[in-house]
C-alpha cells in the first residue's frame, strides 16, 4: 500500500499543476474520494474557517511549496498562525507537519536537496527572501524538538545558551534569565539546587522541559514545538501540556502532534494536513466538534490515519 502511494506521489512530480483540479467541497460524504483525489495528485483547496482570522497573525505562510530532491513534500500551503495562541498541526505520518515546522526557522536549509517556492512572513518580514540573514531569523524563534536534546553541559549553561551566543557575560543577567526560564518551564523547583550538574542526568521529561526553558530564554516571537511529548510517559506529558497552557498568551506556539487528545487539550487552532496539503484549518473547538469535512472527522475520530 505504502509503496503504491509513493509511486503515485512520484508521478505527481511530472505534472505539478494537475489540470483536473476539482472542487469536492460541495459534495459532503465523499471523504474517501477527496483523499483519493489528493493521493492521485489533485489540488484540493483547503477549508479554512473564518475563526482563525479573528486575531492578527504572527506568522503568514504564503503559497509554500517544498521539494526533497525530486519529491514534493509540501503543496501550496497558505495559512496564518495567530499571535499569542497555540496552533496545532495534526495529520498522519508523512503529511509534512514537521517539514513545515522546520521550514519556519529554515532548519531545512541544512539539507542539501531541499528546494522551496513561496514564502513565509514573520510579523511581516520575509523568511525566505534572498537577503535574509538566517541566523538573525532563527534568533526570533525558539524550537523544541521531538527528542529532548540538551547539550552535554550543565543545566545552567543549557538554559542560558541563547544568551551565551549573543555574547552576554553579565552573571546577574544570566542568572535571572535562567531562573525565569526554568520557572517558565516549571522546572525551577526540581533543579534549583543542581544548576551546575550535567543536563544529561535529568529524566526524559525534565530534559524536555529544560529544552523548553532554553527555547523561551531566547524570548522568541514564535515557539515551534515538534511533537514535544512523543518520547515521554503520560505524567511527563501532562506536565508539558500544563506548561504549554501556561505559556499561551505570552508566546505564539506552533505545535506538531500525533496525539489528537493533546491537540484538543492544548491548542486554540488546529490544522489538519494530509500528504503535504492542508485539508482543514480552524479553531480547535470547531475542528473537533463540528468539522466541515468528513475526512477531518474521520481522522480525528480515528477512522483512518
Amino acid at each position: 500500500m505504502r509503496e503504491k502511494r509513493d509511486m503515485e506521489t512520484q508521478s505527481i512530480v511530472t505534472r505539478p499543476s494537475p489540470p483536473d483540479a476539482v472542487d469536492l467541497r460541495r459534495r459532503p460524504g465523499s471523504g474517501e474520494n477527496r483523499l483519493a483525489a489528493i493521493a492521485a495528485g489533485a489540488a484540493v483547496p483547503a477549508d479554512i474557517h473564518a475563526g482563525v482570522f479573528a486575531s492578527p497573525a504572527v506568522l503568514d505562510i504564503e503559497n509554500f511549496n517544498l521539494w526533497y530532491g525530486q519529491k514534493q513534500a509540501l503543496f501550496d500551503l497558505t495559512l496564518p498562525i495567530p499571535r499569542g495562541k497555540v496552533t496545532a498541526l495534526i495529520g498522519p505520518s508523512g503529511c509534512g507537519k514537521s517539514t513545515l515546522l522546520r521550514s519556519v526557522n529554515r532548519l531545512n536549509d541544512l539539507i542539501d536537496s531541499v528546494r522551496i517556492e513561496g514564502d513565509m512572513r514573520l510579523n511581516g518580514d520575509s523568511i525566505y527572501g534572498r537577503s535574509v540573514d538566517v541566523i538573525e531569523l532563527r534568533r526570533r524563534m525558539g524550537m523544541v524538538f521531538q527528542k529532548s536534546n540538551p547539550f552535554p553541559m550543565s543545566i545552567f549553561e543549557n538554559v542560558v545558551y541563547p544568551l551565551r551566543i549573543d555574547g552576554e557575560r553579565n552573571r546577574n543577567v544570566l542568572q535571572e534569565v535562567c531562573e525565569r526560564s526554568l520557572r517558565g518551564a516549571a522546572l525551577w523547583d526540581e533543579v534549583r539546587d543542581r544548576l551546575g550538574e550535567s543536563a544529561l542526568g535529568l529524566s526524559g521529561g525534565q530534559q524536555q522541559r529544560l529544552c523548553i526553558a532554553r527555547a523561551i530564554a531566547a524570548e522568541p516571537e514564535v515557539l515551534l514545538m515538534d511533537e514535544p511529548c512523543s518520547a515521554l510517559d503520560p505524567i511527563a506529558t501532562a506536565k508539558i501540556e500544563e506548561l504549554i497552557a501556561a505559556l499561551r498568551g505570552e508566546y505564539s506556539i506552533l505545535i506538531v502532534t500525533h496525539n489528537m487528545q493533546q491537540a484538543s487539550r492544548v491548542s486554540d487552532d488546529t490544522a489538519f494536513m494530509y500528504l503535504g496539503r492542508l485539508i482543514e484549518y480552524g479553531p480547535t473547538v470547531e475542528i473537533f466538534t463540528r468539522p466541515h469535512l468528513r475526512e477531518t472527522e474521520d481522522y480525528i475520530t480515528g477512522r483512518f490515519g
Binding site: 526557522n105 532548519l107 541544512l110 541566523i135 538573525e136 532563527r138 534568533r139 526570533r140 524563534m141 525558539g142 524550537m143 524538538f145 536534546n149 547539550f151 545558551y161 541563547p162 551566543i165 529544552c211 532554553r214 527555547a215 531566547a218 515551534l224
Partner: peptide, 9 residues
C-alpha cells in the same frame, strides 16, 4: 539543530 534553532551561527 538545537543550537542552530537557538540562533547560533
Amino acid at each position: 539543530a538545537a543550537s542552530l534553532g537557538a540562533g547560533a551561527t
